[in-house]
Computed example of a mutant assay.
Amino acid sequence: MSNNKTNDTSHYAHRLHLEMLDSFDEELEMEVDDYPINALTTDAMGFDEQTDIDRHFYFNELFRLQGELVKLQDWVTHKKLKVVVLFEGRDAAGKGGVIKRITQRLNPRICTVVALPAPSERERTQWYFQRYVPHLPAGGEIVLFDRSWYNRAGVEKVMGFCNTEEYEEFFRSVPEFEKMLIRSGIILIKYWFSISDGEQHVRFIRRIHDPLKQWKLSPMDLESRRFWEQYTKAKETMLERTHIPEAPWWIIEADDKKKARLNCIRHFLSQVPYTKIEREPVALPPRLHNPDYLRRPLPGEMFVPDFYDL
């Protein structure tokens, strides 16, 4: 009997170890999105050329910050807070990578990501902010906007998708709209991811030559390279006219993706004061065993073929 218990303990310890490794590998797999596959096969995984942050420090700090995000999530749920975070920046600035790391360990029912497509014909005739309002959080929720109503101040302005009257009305309306959100109890945080001309060029070239990333390059993305200066002017105007005390902009230096991720997550955590919510101890209930139950065999053709021997 003692040998059986020892074997069971050893088995479960081994399974827990594999679960922890799988969690770590989940983050490593996401790095494929940042580096060419052949770079990932080297000992340094391409890190020496890509970032000034030590690889081990980066992972340790990221996992620590993700643990704090879980505590923040518990606090938001407990206090019924409503949190909105806007992520803006040029194409390939790294917004999506930060959002992935924020949401990676969180409950998708509590922390959701909103990335709206181009407006439909009907939406173009609505009040400009109308299509964003249904996605705002209820109590106990966090909503991350991967691009937001600031499309009007950026791509719509540069590409001529709005006229001058609509553009000016946006700047008249958006401070009042955001103040209204804040008065309603929403915590609003706005991030602009800033990258240099050269860095965006490198990231675009990388996407062009990486079959796993080519889908990220839309015709609009390519046009944004042509209109770099126009986007710069639009960004400067946007920051100048919408940086208000109630809802300030926060600039993330994003040429180094890993630094940008850590800096953004750490700053986000600082914007919502929270404390750890003590949880009730969790214990698995004993499993019921029915001596009369016989497990029926399933037909072999129902099983997915086992191609891999890992």
Rank of each mutant, 00 (worst) to 15 (best):
H56P: 10
H78R: 09
V70K: 06
N60M: 15
R55N: 09
F63R: 07
F59E: 07
T51R: 05
G67H: 08
Q66T: 02
Y58G: 02
W75F: 09
H78A: 12
Q66C: 06
E61G: 02
K71L: 10
I53W: 08
D52P: 10
V70F: 08
H78F: 15
Y58S: 06
Q50T: 08
H78W: 14
I53R: 05
K71E: 07
L81F: 07
W75Q: 03
R64N: 12
K80D: 06
I53E: 07
V76M: 06
F57P: 03
L65R: 02
K82V: 01
V70H: 04
L65A: 01
Q73S: 04
F57Y: 15
K80G: 01
R64K: 13
T51D: 09
V83D: 02
F63Q: 10
R64T: 11
G67F: 08
K79C: 09
L62I: 09
R55W: 11
F63T: 10
D52G: 13
R64D: 12
E68P: 03
F59W: 13
D54I: 13
K71N: 07
F57S: 13
E68L: 10
Y58P: 02
G67C: 10
K79N: 11
Y58H: 08
G67A: 10
Q50A: 14
K82E: 03
Q66S: 06
G67I: 04
F57R: 13
L65T: 03
D54T: 09
V76R: 00
L72R: 00
N60I: 15
K79S: 03
L81Y: 09
Y58L: 11
T77F: 12
L72V: 05
E68C: 00
D54Y: 12
K82F: 03
I53G: 07
K80Q: 11
L72T: 02
D74S: 07
L69R: 01
H56N: 14
N60F: 14
R55C: 09
H56G: 13
F63A: 07
L69T: 00
K79P: 02
F59V: 04
L65D: 04
D52K: 14
L81E: 12
T77L: 14
K82N: 06
T77H: 11
T51Q: 05
T51E: 08
K79R: 13
F63M: 14
T51F: 05
H78Y: 15
V70Y: 09
F57C: 12
H56Y: 14
Q50S: 14
I53N: 06
D74L: 02
L72M: 13
W75A: 01
G67K: 00
E61R: 11
F63C: 11
T77P: 05
R55T: 11
D54Q: 13
D74Q: 08
L81M: 13
Q50F: 11
F59K: 05
T51Y: 10
D74V: 00
L62A: 05
L81A: 09
K80S: 07
V83A: 03
K71S: 07
